[in-house]
Amino acid sequence: MIYISILIVIVAVGVYVYLQRPQFDAPSVEEQSYQGKYYQGQFHNVNEVPVTTSDDNFFVGLYKFLTDKTQDAKPAAELPSQKTDLLGLDPNENIVVWMGHSSYFMQLDGQRYLIDPVFSDSASPVPGTNTAFAGSNVYHAKDIPEIDYLLITHDHWDHLDYPTLEALRDKVAQVVTPIGVGSYLTQWGYTNDTIFERDWFEVFNAHQSTDIYVLPAQHFSGRMLQRNQTLWGSFAIVTPNHKVYFGGDSGYGPHFKQINEQLGGFDLAILETGQYSKNWPFIHMMPEETAQAAEDLEAQAVLPSHNSKFRLSNHSWYEPLDRLSEASRDKPYRLLTPLIGQSVRLDDEGQVFNAWWQPLKSE
């Protein structure tokens, strides 16, 4: 019995020590209304929606997810990629590079942007879980040039990655985040004067008439058990020549039309499609809703996000791309499906991409 007690103490001490790592730092938010979204000690969506519609508690839900037998939940083979040499790019070339899941590099009108970079092999507080699919994690901090603007949509582990941000710190000139997310970065060594942390529909006046808007999303936040201590959001980058929208994580809602009404149509909308479930229909979009959101935004082109790197839900890894491709037939926008690492030329409307995932599907 004494040995069991000693083992329990050792495990407890080990867990306590592990939880002191910077990844588990708590955010800091000044309590105020934030346009009516902050009350009862946390942020809320404008249209109050549940995170899940399931009656299962957290532990039952986790058990069901871990024991689920979804066919092709992970790729059977290594995913293909086409790794663009970011360090060797012409800085005046307007391109977007998808780095898998929700991570993007962009050059736009002479400025470099990095959105939700996650270069770790896993995106979870528990080591060895939620590991990246083979072939999906091809970029690392050493591959990234100097960044003018780092944008973080929210604090979930698959969007806010401490090892990545620590490695990038000396390469980043300016950070733009929703309320509270910047407080993680200041604890991780970023200086206050490099952090622009704002509410929805507030704008950072960037370089040469470029505006970066912090915009709504219908989602939630939290890195451990306590939720909604920081705000979640999306971004629009508006220059004299381009408009690009990064949707982050979001369920479908009226905010897409609202964003369009304020900022007009977009040259490109990067929208989530993946990690959806019938149990959380309000905080992630089904692919058909992604297609509708693209129309609401009056996007000329759509780049699907939040897929093909991590398994966070119980659908096949390729289903989001299949369903969005079908839902995008005869739509007024171009659907762009590059390989991980492949350059998307923003000014080339004739650039064509193949359904690269099709040959990798099991029979």
Rank of each mutant, 00 (worst) to 15 (best):
F24W: 08
L303F: 02
H207N: 13
S325A: 14
L150G: 09
A123P: 01
Q23E: 15
I270E: 02
I4P: 05
T52N: 06
R311I: 05
Y18W: 12
T177C: 14
Q82N: 13
N228P: 05
V29M: 03
S234A: 11
E93T: 13
F282Q: 12
G88S: 03
P338K: 13
L312H: 13
V9K: 13
N57C: 07
P163G: 02
L87F: 00
I270W: 01
Y38K: 11
I270H: 01
L87D: 05
A12M: 14
V172I: 15
W356E: 10
A73N: 10
H306F: 14
A291S: 13
Q40R: 12
L108A: 08
L151Y: 04
S305Q: 10
S209H: 12
K331E: 02
I283W: 07
A76Q: 09
F235T: 06
W317G: 01
R169W: 05
Y276D: 11
G265M: 05
D155M: 05
I340S: 01
W98A: 12
K142C: 00
D109G: 04
T131C: 10
V11L: 14
N92D: 15
M224W: 15
H159R: 15
K171F: 01
N130H: 11
V126D: 02
Q300T: 10
G350A: 15
F65Y: 15
H159A: 14
V51S: 08
F246V: 08
F105Q: 06
D55H: 10
E197D: 15
H306W: 12
N205P: 01
S343W: 07
V51E: 07
S136P: 00
Y63L: 13
P359R: 04
A206Y: 05
W356H: 09
I237S: 06
R169Y: 04
G135Y: 00
L271S: 03
E146L: 08
S81D: 03
F59V: 14
F59C: 08
G233N: 03
